[in-house]
Design a binder for these strands. Structure first.
Lengths: 132, 132
DNA sequence: CGTGGCAACGATAATGATTGTCAAAAACGC
DNA sequence: GCGTTTTTGACAATCATTATCGTTGCCACG
């Protein structure tokens, strides 16, 4: 039990989940992803999918969204901090960056003496295709 | 059967929930509120608490927050649209208004052709008292 | 004041996503 | 290769929320 704590091992399952996320567009639930892996013939347990997704989320490699409705949705996103504009009807998602919002949030929090600030922001709407 | 569709009836339970929310500070889960009503001797079913809270939320009279962790939290808030700055440690909450954010969200959504726009924003941090 | 329709209530069961458990399997360092 | 340690994965447990459905109480009208 040295202090090396390498910890993260490279397993087939982890690669499979990561690879799948790399190909997917849009958000998908853990159970969705699990079903897709199964269809591909990958042998992965649901528990492992959840664990892997949590790990990736902690590492900042994927984004998590909690839409009203209960399921957590995961997506591989561009690296930096950003937010999402999601269509209520079809789920089409656009990544949006809002530096002004970031700084506003930090400023507001600082004014109230809050430290170690983070925030979540989701925008919902109906996309052009679904409006008609 | 006129077109009035009054619909909303004035019941003891609805008043109790609304009154309780009026006295409470901060956010509370549906189950919390239900337990409190029970302690007071009010005879209210858990189902009704959920229904009432949803109704109030739809009517815009209370705010709903979905913190990471699963429970929905409800709170009576000031009327207009606003957001919350929440302490991770003690839960202390500050209401913040950000007109700039609202217009930014609308603008971004409009740029992408999205209609009927809404958004959710929560800011998390550690409040001054908990920093020490 | 009495009555009937209809929405609200509420106990219980159902749902369904997520998390915990723990023995067995696989991966990494040597 | 070998041992150790992490990881896996099937299953059960948890737990908030939602659906169900017979009963109750509100409200309006006669």
């Amino acid at each position: 039990m040295s202090e090396s704590s390498a910890a993260v091992r490279n397993t087939r399952q982890r690669s499979a989940v990561s690879a799948l996320l790399g190909e997917m567009e849009g958000f998908h639930s853990a159970q969705d992803l699990h079903a897709m892996l199964r269809q591909r013939g990958e042998r992965v347990g649901l528990t492992t999918v959840y664990r892997t997704l949590q790990g990736l989320a902690d590492a900042g490699e994927i984004d998590v969204m909690r839409p009203p409705g209960g399921e957590h949705l995961y997506r591989r996103c561009s690296e930096g901090h950003h937010h999402h504009l999601v269509c209520r009807a079809c789920g089409r998602t656009v990544e949006v960056a809002g530096p002004a919002v970031e700084s506003w949030a930090d400023r507001v929090a600082a004014q109230h003496g809050y430290a170690d600030v983070s925030h979540t922001l989701e925008i919902f709407g109906t996309c052009p295709a679904c409006v008609r």
